[in-house]
């Protein structure tokens, strides 16, 4: 991956990119999610997409604060982000995080932030359709892969097809879990649960979900969200299956398949 320019650097040259890549906190700081960030950036670069990041001018979208109930904090973060995005006259945003995706798409317009927001799985599918990105190699051909619908891409924003179309492009053998699409079970991280201990119960939600994934007999679990990625990986680890079953983001699968 080559270094990605920031919006500020491009603005200094009087340039504006085709699309802004919104990285998000997980994609920026979490070790595992950083790998997804780099994989996606590498795909964008190989497809010749003209894109930039905000770099240190990016803040949390405010999703966890708002869902925890902390509206003050949400408003502070959101208004600051809207100010930055509007300053650069951003038109189109792509992000690999469904929580950022949802907040940017559905919650910023009322605060004066109107952008075309796409999720990275949608963007990658479009690149494939346009022929800017090609899937060759076929290292996943016939391999059993199961797909986990994240709540905020699936149920909340109704996107079930783009990620599955990507798996189809990989020629993978998609096996669905018992609960999928509109009934997909949450990984347990949403609503700011990522930052707190579970309430008392019989089981962790991510373990329940990992068990469903393991039941399919798939060797790869595909995800589209950095939080799901962590939760399901931890769930698979809790079942001591981390050596047999890998959890990947779709961008990583496309990249590892040898997309050029």
């Amino acid at each position: 991956m080559n270094r990605i320019p920031t919006m500020a650097e491009l603005a200094a040259e009087g340039r504006q990119p085709e699309v802004l890549f919104w990285v998000g906190c997980a994609g920026s700081f979490d070790d595992r999610a950083q790998r997804v960030t780099r994989a996606f950036a590498e795909l964008l670069q190989s497809a010749g997409v003209d894109f930039a990041i905000l770099g240190q001018e990016e803040s949390c979208t405010g999703d966890p604060a708002r869902r925890a109930g902390n509206e003050f904090l949400f408003q502070m973060l959101a208004q600051q982000n809207v100010a930055v995005l509007n300053m650069y006259e951003v038109k189109k945003i792509v992000t690999a995080c469904p929580h950022c995706f949802n907040t940017l798409k559905n919650e910023y317009p009322v605060l004066g932030g109107n952008y075309e927001v796409v999720h990275h799985t949608q963007f990658l599918l479009q690149l494939l359709k346009e022929g800017r990105l090609k899937v060759e190699g076929g290292s996943f051909k016939g391999k059993k892969i199961t797909y986990h619908d994240s709540c905020y891409l699936g149920r909340v924003n109704g996107e079930y097809e783009a990620p599955r179309a990507l798996l189809e492009a990989l020629d993978a053998d998609l096996v669905e879990m018992k609960r999928c699409r509109t009934n997909g079970l949450c990984c347990g991280a949403g609503g700011a649960q990522m930052w707190k201990e579970d309430e008392p119960g019989d089981k962790r939600i991510n373990v329940e979900r990992a068990e469903e994934a393991l039941e399919t007999g798939a060797s790869v679990v595909a995800s589209n969200c950095p939080f799901c990625l962590t939760m399901i990986s931890d769930g698979v680890k809790a079942k001591d299956k981390q050596d047999e079953v890998m959890v990947y983001d779709l961008a990583e699968l496309i990249l590892n398949n040898g997309a050029r």
């Binding site: 994609g27 700081f29 966890p64 604060a65 990522m194």
Partner: peptide, 26 residues
């Protein structure tokens, strides 16, 4: 458990308080 989250969001505008800059991966 949410206090560190709120503090980090308020002080460093990110969900985790990190010593590295946001774009260290780049």
């Amino acid at each position: 458990d949410w206090l560190p989250l709120f503090n980090s969001l308020e002080n460093s505008q990110s969900a985790w308080a990190m010593s590295t800059p946001r774009d260290a991966w780049n």
